[in-house]
């Protein structure tokens, strides 16, 4: 499983998909977040490996 952390929420998705596919499966528009690993941006085309953990940062600000 792949772990995606977004603020207090933790999502798990099956490995083997691209990040974009995983986000769409979760109902998240891919361009509204940035995925981060070890302080670096992870592209939407990346296929996270089983057990991989990524942080999702919302890029849409309010107000």
């Amino acid at each position: 499983m792949v772990i995606l952390k977004r603020k207090e929420q933790v999502y798990t998705v099956e490995a083997g998909k691209t990040l974009e596919q995983a986000l769409r499966e979760l109902g998240i528009l891919p361009e509204t977040v940035l995925a981060i690993k070890d302080g670096r941006i992870v592209p939407l085309s990346h296929r996270p490996a089983d057990g991989e953990e990524l942080e999702l940062v919302d890029v849409i600000s309010g107000g």
């Binding site: 941006i41 890029v59 309010g62 107000g63």
Partner: peptide
Amino acid sequence: SEREMAAYCLIKGIRYLYEDCPHAQGA
């Protein structure tokens, strides 16, 4: 775009507040 600006900050090491104004909810 917001996406470009967020990426710019991450790349340049600009530590910004991720949190939105509490009054913006439902705006």
